[in-house]
Design a protein around this nucleic acid. Structure first.
Length: 361
DNA sequence: AAAACGGGGAA
DNA sequence: TTCCCAGTTTT
């Protein structure tokens, strides 16, 4: 036990002034200060770089930023440019709605006669939310405003061992509160750059360099030896539900109609029951084959869960009079003796269904 | 193969 | 309010 991970150790109170001091001292010594958007700092250049960096790594952004600012050196130039020209400069960065927002916002800023210098004014522009607005205000205007981009979320969830997915509103709320608490009123611009830098270069998603971190003494996740647990992952989204009818066609002598599934996709190449999206599609299928239906009823629906969706299937039991071979379709279908189902490659839920059918009928 | 990224807009 | 999405890169 190295003491660092002893959960019974009392938590030292996080002191914002001390945190800021160590972070800024680290930034002074190790921070990145030569990135293109850190030169000739202006609201326009900060806004543009923040927008580009939302989705892309620094190294990728640099040439785009340079080409973009060369063609559109000011927000007025951007506003005056045709949208096609703007999109052409964005090509390859993805999220093209952002280029359109950028252009739209530039036109509004031009109409206003300059950049808004308030949170509300900035957030009223398309494509600028609270975090981007905070970055512009702190970096370009040196006003004290918190930000909460992906890097800062990672730093702060680790710092206070804040569990739960940051996209959750309650978690996001505590992160904003912590970000605000830690943002100093002096050196706001440098602080904002510093905490983003820390997240980008030391407090990385994987293999964080905690031994080089200036604030590891404040870091609850580090003390717990649990840094990689933060931030919590986005919960897997609820799976979509697909529904179908499975036709269990059987003869008086207990033979069952099976079809070979196409080689790719779900249950590729396995033998299974004919599958229909709708009841009348199943009926049509029987009618078109001139099957004489002796009796029919459906069983209760069941659910089978795949990695990416739920399949709710309703078995349709249809007994036919004539065990003909006119439903045979080359090598793709067969009548199978229901007492010997184990010899074929059957999907698990189909196998279960057939076993149940065997027992009950 | 899956997660991450910040904001907009649909539900 | 909450949920879902966009495109590309990284893991």
């Amino acid at each position: 036990m190295n003491g660092l991970s002893d959960p019974t150790m009392p938590r030292p109170r996080l002191d914002p002034a001390s945190f800021q001091e160590r972070l800024l001292a680290w930034f002074d010594q190790h921070g990145r200060k030569n990135l293109p958007w850190q030169q000739a700092i202006s609201p326009y250049r900060v806004w543009l770089s923040e927008t580009m960096l939302q989705q892309t790594q620094v190294a990728t952004v640099i040439p785009y930023f340079q080409a973009f600012t060369e063609s559109f050196p000011t927000v007025e130039a951007l506003a005056a440019a045709p949208i096609d020209e703007v999109l052409r400069h964005w090509a390859g960065l993805g999220y093209y709605a952002r280029a359109r927002n950028l252009h739209k916002a530039a036109q509004r800023i031009a109409e206003l006669g300059g950049f808004p210098d308030t949170l509300e004014g900035l957030m009223a522009l398309p494509g600028i939310g609270q975090s981007t607005a905070g970055a512009i205000l702190s970096i370009a205007f040196n006003n004290s405003h918190p930000i909460l981009d992906g890097n800062v979320k990672r730093v702060l969830t680790r710092l206070n061992a804040i569990g739960g997915w940051p996209g959750q509103s309650q978690v996001s709320k505590s992160l904003w509160a912590l970000s605000a608490e830690l943002t100093p009123s002096v050196r706001a611009a440098e602080y904002t750059q510093a905490i983003m830098d820390l997240g980008a270069t030391l407090c990385t998603r994987s293999k964080p360099l905690c031994l080089a971190c200036p604030v590891s003494a404040d870091c609850q996740a580090y003390r717990q030896g649990n840094v990689s647990a933060y931030p919590s992952r986005k919960p897997p989204k609820t799976l979509p539900i697909k529904a179908c009818f499975l036709l269990l066609l059987y003869t008086p002598d207990q033979r069952i109609y099976l079809e070979k599934r196409p080689p790719t996709g779900i249950w590729g190449g396995l033998w299974s029951l004919p599958e229909f999206a709708a009841l009348n599609a199943a009926e049509d299928w029987c009618l078109s084959r001139n099957l004489l239906i002796k009796q029919r009823h459906s069983l209760a629906s069941k659910r089978h869960t795949f990695s990416h969706y739920h399949l709710d299937y309703t078995p349709l039991l249809v007994q036919i009079e004539n065990p003909t071979n006119n439903v045979m379709e080359a090598e793709q279908a067969l009548w199978y003796n229901s007492a010997q189902i184990s010899g074929l490659g059957l999907p698990a839920p189909i196998k279960t269904l057939l076993q149940q059918f065997n027992t009950d009928y």
